[in-house]
Write a protein that binds this DNA or RNA. Structure first.
Lengths: 143, 143
DNA sequence: CCGCGAAACGTGCATATACCCGCATCGTGT
DNA sequence: ACACGATGCGGGTATATGCACGTTTCGCGG
């Protein structure tokens, strides 16, 4: 008999899937808003982070963004190709690949910010900005 | 005071990036938990959805999951390759590709559910389950 | 029946994401 | 100087995601 479990895979909604879904929607919205700037929200985030940190080796950059190291490395590719960042071998430690924000990169950030504010305002109007941050904080430490 | 602009790209945190970050962490947790089942949380979600809906054409399946149509199509590939779903031409409408959950697929869901419950419990212990759902609802409609 | 717009798909391209494995370099103890 | 474990990275593989474009099939009006 259908004991207790599930007639058709237990209907309780999956928290992860819900979160992924929300993220897809939000990302699409930001990407659409940033469209004119030629940046994706992921790229915008990396550039901004770099702007905040200054020249930074890949591994540290990845750690700051809570991104897998190799993912960060690959995400930098398009940015480097477009001259928004420059990647040089570390002076003190030859293993390190130091990522540097170029002038073009700084310009790209500046140009994108108005569009970003747009999206940010639209989304923050729908949810308490703090709620997402709190949620994120609570979830990040979960790993 | 920082009049308006930004000394170094205005420090206000990006809601989208925070959300993406949280999602990465949560997805990693679920994927790790589901590891023994050989399913990713994305795949698990698709199989469960399919279990709930019964045989469904790709476009409708994508709509239900709030996924881009072509993304759904591609996400089905690994599942079909592993025999968890079967894809047949529509009987009434030859344009449609009807996705069907196989016995192996049903078994895979059943086998994965305990692991999924694990992850679900761990995450829901850190955030109100309703909070994520509410957030998702608020954000989804934003597009 | 013919043509035509609409609907359902697939493909190519680009990015995002993570795991595993291997390579080069660093620092350190001997 | 040297062997060795630790560290910083890249490459290969696989999935996830979405956009632009092209193809096939439907349904319909003429």
């Amino acid at each position: 008999m259908s004991d207790e479990s599930h007639p058709r895979a237990s209907l309780e909604p999956c928290t992860c899937s819900a979160l992924r879904r929300a993220t897809r929607a939000v990302t699409t919205a930001y990407d659409a808003a940033l469209r004119p700037s030629g940046l994706r929200v992921t790229q915008f985030a990396i550039l901004r982070l770099l702007d905040r940190l200054g020249p930074t080796p890949v591994t540290r950059l990845a750690a700051e963004a809570a991104l897998e190291r190799t993912t960060m490395g690959r995400n930098l590719d398009p940015l480097e190709r477009r001259g928004l960042v420059r990647i040089a071998a570390g002076a003190v430690d030859a293993r390190e690949r130091v990522v540097v924000l170029t002038e073009a990169g700084r310009d790209a950030i500046a140009a994108a910010i108005p569009y970003w504010r747009d999206a940010q305002a639209r989304i923050n109007a729908r949810v308490a900005p703090g709620a997402v941050a709190a949620l994120a904080d609570a979830l990040i430490s979960a790993s």
